[in-house]
Design a protein around this nucleic acid. Structure first.
Lengths: 240, 240
DNA sequence: TTCAACAAATGGTACGAACCAATATGCAAA
DNA sequence: TTTGCATATTGGTTCGTACCATTTGTTGAA
């Protein structure tokens, strides 16, 4: 499958920027890029639009297109370069050893909030998966996930020892590419303190998320309680 | 100034969706919308692209364009509908009474992290503004902001009693439309507990942000400590 | 009745043209 | 030297065309 034109331009520009090809933080104008890449200006605009939306560059009418110098200085916690959107990828640094302890695993009827979030009928069944996640042997997150049994009929205790999304992608050919997240914080409960090795005054970060496949089907509702030292979320917001 | 075509389409579609005009969660196909709105398909695609990027609808090749039913159910804490990006706008609900107490206000040399974040030379001066923000009389956030003195030469104690960004927009014609945010959580300090009326085991949410004007100039570095009950952040993430 | 092949519907990609709007530049006048 | 204006530069908007890719519906043969 030939790579799409706008994606090729986007990739190459990103690579050029990372390689420091624009030390003056200024990109060539769009019409020159049209010549350089041999595509239309519309395609250039599309590629630049992605760079803008990710906060890598910004544009100013009449002036030009400029690299956001902070982007590559800040830690790349929010660099979604992979295919999937698993939370751990953004919380955990490269090279650290992740592991998973399954705390509970069973099937139940979806209760109200879960059913609503996952678009289920009141009597549909879901897996309830409670796991403790560790990095380099240190527990950092309690994760309770709910998945419709209909969408993933053959889950078992062995599968959920590893990354769920890797399994979904590899075995079920489901790509998880969208999510709603709600982030908040709470004092830790006794159970949190025990599992995450927290002192009584130390809090947890709480993330609730609904995750969707490519096609817009909600596939997981997840509630995560995160050791506060590991709770980090970066985001770039741009209006207009 | 006449409204732009793609924006008109976006607004009207959003309004229609909110009004429940598509009970089957399905929008007309793009070519029909072209006729309905009297604009080209490119313009329709642009408007729909915004709806997609905000998670309001999703599209599927060969099938159609569908409303995301979860979008309007979730609490709109983070719905940037105004011109500016001030934090209070997104944390505080409509109709609640906001007020501000100025705790400290002075000018100092920018220290390392601040200087780097705001793109300053080591000897440049910044305002340091420490404020306590309340909603309906209840303190909910301690905010320490740093602004380059060069960009806003005439700040004074009176101005910072009110919203800084409103002032910047009205008086300085600076629009703040972009930000990098980093969100985390910590146990509350003694000072937090006193100012925010927290119990010792209750935590604070921590938001650090760099805010940019339209033109990409960093204008504020802000460190916010938020009462945990007010700490709520919603986000929609979509890959690809 | 079932299923496979075909057709229609629908979003995706790409091109190119024309013109507008904001900013930067250079030159001439003060 | 400084200021102000004309011009060039550069991104923004909109239109329209052509064709591709995926999904869904239809139809006819087995």
């Amino acid at each position: 499958m030939a790579e799409l034109a706008y994606h090729r331009v986007y990739s190459q520009l990103t690579a050029q920027i990372k390689a420091g090809q624009y030390p003056d933080y200024r990109l060539p104008d769009e019409r020159s890029l049209t010549d350089q890449f041999g595509v239309s200006r519309s395609t250039i605009k599309r590629a630049l639009g992605i760079l803008v939306s990710r906060g890598i560059v910004f544009q100013k009418q009449g002036a030009g297109t400029f690299v956001n110098p902070l982007y590559f200085k800040s830690k790349p916690l929010f660099n979604y370069t992979g295919d999937n959107i698993g939370i751990t990828d953004s919380l955990v640094q490269d090279g650290q050893q992740q592991s998973i302890q399954v705390l509970h695993f069973h099937v139940q009827k979806a209760k109200d909030e879960i059913a609503q979030s996952l678009f289920l009928q009141p009597n549909d069944f879901v897996y309830r998966i409670e796991r403790l996640r560790l990095v380099d042997g240190q527990p950092f997150m309690i994760e309770i996930g709910y998945l419709p049994i209909r969408l993933v009929p053959d889950l078992n205790e062995e599968v959920i020892q590893d990354s769920l999304y890797t399994y979904l992608e590899k075995e079920q050919h489901l790509q998880v590419t969208k999510s709603f997240l709600n982030i908040s914080t709470e004092p830790s409960t006794a159970s949190d303190q025990k599992l995450l090795q927290l002192k009584p005054n130390e809090p947890v970060g709480v993330m609730e998320g609904i995750f969707f496949t490519d096609s817009g089907t909600p596939i997981e509702f997840s509630r995560m309680r995160i050791h506060y030292k590991y709770m980090q979320y970066n985001s770039f917001v741009s209006l207009s």
